[in-house]
Design a protein around this nucleic acid. Structure first.
Lengths: 341, 341
DNA sequence: CATACCGATGTAAACGCTTACATTTTTCTG
DNA sequence: CAGAAAAATGTAAGCGTTTACATCGGTATG
């Protein structure tokens, strides 16, 4: 590959002049500039990003550390992140970091000198503690428990969203409402559970442990949970799954058991993934503006990078919206999608 | 941020020794090594990836240029790519390059010095021509038209898959089968159309232009196409949509028009995205092993990188599989998903 | 006891670029 | 047309690493 030196030699100028042409900085006589560009083109020269960032101390790249890459949630998230990043002239370096604290640390140090900042989603680790450990880099926490101050973070209004769903179910006359919980140790899961309990208390109902089913955010987990609930002596009249994947599993289990939704039992989910409205019956869910979540995180990160040390930490929460469809049997449930974009 | 020099000074050794400790290369006395590691930890030192890759001439990063990031297809693709890349110790730098040739070129040159190779998916540009233009980097083409030799590429057996679907429909007794075409100028779209026509010819049926509806791979496009087909004087008895998103749009349009699927009209899709089996009725589709597609591309790329110039070009095609469900009304259609993982 | 050798460490030259500063060339001014 | 100011270009010092090669004790060898 041709380097700046090759171009300089060929065009009979110093490398400084070549550099100036490619950076728009400094002044170069038009004739010289043209000659340099021609030579560069004929040599197929392109500036070496790595070398450039070594000296400028900026990589124009953002690291994105995610716990997983599976499913629509992450697809949307990455889209939101990329969109915002690219508008600001940044690339994104995606990495899937497994759950453990060790791996996250490892991933963080691998980012050193490759990125200008990191969006970190690590719902299983108390991410705050991570920040003391490896590299010093601007970091924004996404959907992660961040206790202390000192850290930027973006979260979903899980608790509020869960309460909205519960209030909806309660308003339809349900008293025995079960929840299929999210993965244990997961921050979002814990918050949604908290919302569930709060809503019950507010309605004067004492939460029952037998109605709190363990789950893991997977379809299979929802399926299994539903089976348990169906067989329980005092069957619930509604099931709130802590995410849509599990709700889908629940629907399958109910159908196989010959139970009608919503007539025999109502079902609600969380996230409102695109699939939700296509279920049979269409699934009532709590919409999370996923791509906005990513966009917000990047926005915060960019600010942190720009402001360097002088930067007041921000923690924001994106709000959710209850989307009512047939699976909860509300009279005003959403009609089938119109589809004319 | 601490650099190798800081560590060296603090530990009272030369930077070379520090470097050796962090690379496992060369021999360092255990006592010295420990001291260096301690100092490094207390200084929160981590090697600077950029500087390192400047001198070693490898970045341990793979560039991924995609036309879009929307939807399950890309989510799966990235997953496959990341999986394989990380096993080989590579990171991935994701970039969405718009359609135009200019943008792809621009993105390619931005990759210079940041990555060791590129997976390029650019279904609208004759990607082969790109390879002459900007930077010299190992490239693997994904789902892209690559005419000449000289280029590694990974594709889907679009034509074969489309024929499978058509043969299935023909075997069910359909003669008037419409196709909703993919985006114009798109390679996959063209190949699927080719398969459609070949299958008809083989069955002794002359393809009719009026049965080839324009589409764009979007739900809305499928919806619009279906409306046209419904209103045509001589209505088809089956519709083959060139991807699942459009098939979903088709299903919506048919439902709204009061037509039953598959009794009044059969519908088939392509890709077999997760949504397909949840449709009502579940959608017959041609499964594309998406994450394998990504994995294969990375595998080929890694080989190209390893082999440097000595590398025989490979072009592989991943095969598809017809997944029969209720939307085509075959007697042996797939039962509802089992779900016990 | 000189020699060769080996293990441990240091020295310094890259890698491809940017940029402050110095130097040369051009253009203007009186 | 001299001299100064402005414009154009060159020089060289890094950026944070790796690594070939040099150095320097110390130990085994003859």
């Amino acid at each position: 590959m041709a380097t700046i030196k090759d171009v300089a030699r060929e065009a009979q100028v110093s490398i400084a002049t070549v550099s100036r042409v490619f950076n728009g900085a400094g002044i170069v006589r038009e004739e010289t500039a043209r000659r340099i560009r021609d030579v560069a083109a004929s040599l197929r020269y392109a500036p070496h990003g790595g070398a450039r960032s070594l000296i400028t101390r900026r990589t124009s790249t953002l690291g994105v550390l995610l716990p997983d890459l599976y499913g629509e949630f992450f697809s949307e998230l990455i889209r939101g992140i990329d969109e915002t990043a690219r508008h600001a002239g940044y690339h994104i370096l995606v990495s899937r970091s497994w759950e453990g604290r060790r791996e996250v640390e490892e991933a963080m140090r691998a980012m050193r000198g490759r990125v200008d900042g990191v969006v970190l989603m690590s719902p299983h680790v108390n991410a705050d503690s991570l920040l003391n450990v490896p590299v010093t880099l601007p970091v924004v926490l996404l959907c992660s428990p961040a206790t202390g101050p000192g850290t930027d973070s973006v979260n979903v209004q899980n608790c509020r969203g869960a309460r909205d769903m519960m209030e909806h179910l309660l308003s339809l006359g349900h008293h025995r409402i079960a929840i299929v919980k999210g993965a244990s140790g997961n921050y979002d899961a814990a918050e949604r559970l908290r919302g569930y309990r709060l809503a019950l208390r507010d309605a004067g109902i004492t939460p029952e442990r037998s109605l709190e089913c363990r789950g893991d955010f997977s379809e299979a987990g929802g399926y299994a949970a539903a089976l348990t609930l169906i067989e329980s002596k005092h069957r619930p009249t509604a099931i709130f799954a802590a995410n849509d994947s599990m709700a889908i599993g629940v629907l399958s289990a109910l159908r196989e058991a010959g139970l009608r939704v919503p007539e025999d039992i109502a079902v609600g989910g969380f996230d409102d993934i695109p699939l939700a409205r296509y279920m049979d019956p269409p699934l009532t869910s709590v919409r999370v503006p996923i791509s906005e979540l990513g966009a917000r995180a990047v926005g915060t990160l960019l600010e942190a990078i720009a402001r360097k040390t002088h930067h007041t930490r921000q923690r924001s929460r994106v709000s959710t919206e209850l989307v009512i469809r047939r699976s909860t049997g509300a009279p005003y449930a959403e009609r089938p999608p119109p589809l004319r974009h």
